[in-house]
Design a binder for these strands. Structure first.
Length: 285
DNA sequence: ACTATATCCTGTATGC
DNA sequence: TGCATACAGGATATAG
């Protein structure tokens, strides 16, 4: 599932491929991934021909490919979105090609997406920051992030602390995997109300989230299957370093207690019942 | 204003 | 073997 480290890995791959390249042709093979483009698939395709990409950027899990004229192609990978370049792999292997960009160096960039939760759109004037992202908060790697302000905002919320970590309007880039990993590192239960945590514990949690995502980025991201790969089709290997997510029944790497899996927001949450106990005295010295 | 939930989507794994 | 069900979970619209 692409979260910040995976999206940043893709951004770096795109930077090497598209920067300075001009679009020769665009083909939209399925309308759903361009549903955010109000003028429709045909307009999306024709509007991009002849334009030139600048350096790709990212906020949280969103990517955008600025164009040298000040507009941008806004992209989100959703659950299963990928950008692929045909340099190394025959494109016939890709079963879910949705949009293709023919570039002026002869290469083809393809947006592939099995589940189609992701998508592309054209953002007028969006080169610096697409207007569509105004509600998306800065992420933990953003040099302009105000950490003190973020700590205060989290500590003000009455929601369970994992819900807050997943709220992209509070802090962006964190999904189910890194939320569980950050909570494990900070020894916090996912359901503890954020406003019951001392500010220092909130700060530790956010620093744990930043640290685990930095570790994952060094590893090229987390892959469980072929649903997340970089632009060359390569998997990341951080899944081997996960401490909580997906480890139900496996011993906690700190204390040996079996990790448990619990329902959470129509999905799953993983925690160590010994290191991350319930809400009793959580956060107290 | 804030919080919580339903919905979209398809492939894989599992159960009967 | 076939069919049904659960699960994966991002963002967003809608409800409370």
């Amino acid at each position: 599932m692409p979260e910040l480290p995976e999206v940043e890995t893709v951004r770096r791959g795109l930077e090497a491929v598209v920067t300075g390249r001009t679009v020769k042709a665009v083909e939209v093979l399925h309308p759903r991934p361009v549903r955010r483009h109000a003028a429709g698939p045909d307009d999306f395709a024709s509007a991009l021909v002849g334009r030139t990409f600048a350096v790709p950027r990212r906020r949280g899990k969103y990517l955008w490919l600025p164009l040298t004229d000040g507009d941008a192609v806004l992209a989100h990978l959703g659950m299963s979105g990928q950008f692929r370049v045909d340099a190394t792999t025959a494109m016939t292997e890709h079963r879910h090609v949705r949009v293709g960009f023919a570039l002026d160096d002869g290469r083809t960039l393809r947006f592939c997406d099995q589940r189609m939760f992701g998508g592309l759109s054209l953002s007028p004037g969006g080169a610096e920051l697409p207007a569509e992202l105004r509600h998306i908060a800065r992420d933990l790697f953003d040099p302009e992030l105000d950490l003190d302000d973020l700590v205060a905002r989290v500590a003000r919320s009455r929601s369970g602390v994992k819900r807050v970590l997943l709220n992209q309007a509070v802090v962006s880039g964190i999904g189910n995997i890194y939320a569980d990993e950050a909570l494990w590192r900070a020894r916090l239960h996912h359901a503890v109300p954020a406003d019951e945590l001392p500010a220092q514990r909130v700060r530790e949690l956010l620093e744990a989230a930043r640290a685990v995502m930095a570790d994952a980025l060094d590893a090229g991201g987390t892959s469980f299957d072929a649903l997340y790969v970089d632009v060359n089709g390569e998997s990341g290997w951080f899944d081997r370093s996960l401490d909580a997510y997906g480890r139900a029944g496996a011993p906690c790497r700190r204390c040996g207690t079996p990790i448990v899996r619990e329902p959470f927001m129509n999905r799953s949450s993983f925690r160590c019942p010994a290191c991350q106990p319930g809400t009793v005295r959580v956060g107290q010295p």
